[in-house]
């Protein structure tokens, strides 16, 4: 659903680029809308903070790719049966393996992605306000929501382009360095993973846009965004762990089913964090051998064939996580939208 939409938008965007604007006076609103998108897109591309973040993301991903490839080649040389390689989704491991010196690609993306999202969105509205351009912008014949929508679309577009090109670059380099092409399923998994990244970053982007509508000051918006990110990245798991210590205290547990219950409570608590949802989803997508996200009883595993999950099953497993992430994204955007529609345009 998301993909189709985005494709449509991209198509519109490029047709808007090719066609000289102003040729049709009928479609006024969309034209002005794409004018804003275009401007925001170039602004983002030109701004130093995005360039710096892009460079960092590029450097780290190539670094992690390099370590992954060296690790994989070492294991490949030691592997005896070549047949097994095809079945074990070796290609996907370039995204997940590391030799301990540098974190893996997914760790980097999970770490820098939110920062990238926040950097794209934190001054969306507040900077227009503080520069005094908002009232000028609103005095033009465009609906009020176009401004917010266009900012979101342009940031999402940049995000999509960046992550697809990054993902495909890493894939291409992986093929060159390893000499193994990815299978069709592996490729689909990579695409799914990239889409997941985009949704995840879109969440942080929308959170930042929300903060930028709430706070008049860009710096406040940026700091609040980073604070939320830090909280979920570092402190949330610590808090949950503290809580789980008391919950999983062996002295208070009498029944094995209680252990499972408590484990699931803790897991669900963890899942309130978007970071955790993202981590779970990437693990399932890129490591098909992981078969479940929760505890499994012996009865459930009895009779199971030890083999990687097919893609459809993996997707089914992360469906709730994905829905949750998209829902969180939408909620943030909806709140920002409502707030913005009701806000005073006045500069002071």
């Amino acid at each position: 659903m998301d993909l189709a939409n985005k494709k449509e938008q991209v198509k519109d965007f490029f047709s808007g680029l090719v066609k000289p604007s102003g040729s049709a006076a009928t479609n006024t609103n969309t034209q002005a809308f794409w004018a804003i998108v275009r401007k925001e897109f170039t602004d983002n591309l030109r701004s130093w903070r995005i360039i710096i973040l892009l460079l960092i993301i590029l450097l780290t991903s190539f670094g992690s790719l390099y370590t992954a490839v060296t690790t994989i080649s070492d294991t490949l040389e030691n592997a005896e049966e070549v047949d097994q390689i095809g079945q074990s989704y070796l290609f996907l491991t370039i995204f997940t393996t590391s030799d301990g010196t540098l974190p893996s690609f997914i760790t980097f993306v999970g770490f820098l992605g939110p920062l990238f999202g926040i950097a794209l969105g934190f001054d969306a509205i507040s900077s227009e306000r503080s520069r005094g351009t908002l009232s000028r912008l609103m005095a033009h014949p465009i609906p009020r929501d176009s401004v917010l929508n266009a900012k979101f679309v342009s940031a999402l577009l940049l995000n999509t382009i960046l992550f697809f090109s990054l993902g495909f670059l890493v894939t291409a380099l992986g093929i060159l360095l390893l000499g193994i092409p990815p299978t069709g399923e592996e490729f689909t998994r990579i695409v799914c993973f990239l889409l997941l990244c985009i949704v995840y970053i879109a969440f942080w982007l929308n959170l930042a846009i929300l903060f930028s509508t709430v706070f008049k000051n860009s710096a406040t918006a940026a700091l609040s965004g980073i604070a939320v990110w830090l909280f979920f990245n570092v402190f949330y798991s610590i808090i949950v762990r503290l809580f789980s210590n008391s919950l999983l205290n062996p002295e208070s547990i009498t029944d094995p089913t209680q252990v499972v219950d408590h484990q699931e409570t803790i897991l669900n608590l963890m899942r309130l964090s978007p970071n955790h949802l993202f981590n779970e989803s990437t693990t399932i997508l890129l490591s098909p051998t992981v078969r479940s996200l929760g505890p499994l009883t012996m009865e459930q595993t009895a009779g199971a064939v030890v083999s990687p999950l097919p893609l459809s099953q993996s997707l089914l497993l992360i469906w709730p996580q994905l829905t949750g992430l998209i829902a969180a994204t939408m909620i943030c955007f909806a709140i920002a939208y409502i707030l913005f529609m009701r806000q005073e345009i006045r500069t002071n």
């Binding site: 520069r131 005094g132 009232s135 000028r136 005095a139 500069t347 002071n348």
Partner: peptide
């Protein structure tokens, strides 16, 4: 408002431009 804004030019008191 859109029809109105098509015909009316507004110069706000605290006007700003995209300085880049």
């Amino acid at each position: 408002p859109i029809d109105v804004k098509r015909r009316v030019g507004y110069l706000p008191d605290n006007l700003g431009f995209y300085h880049h």
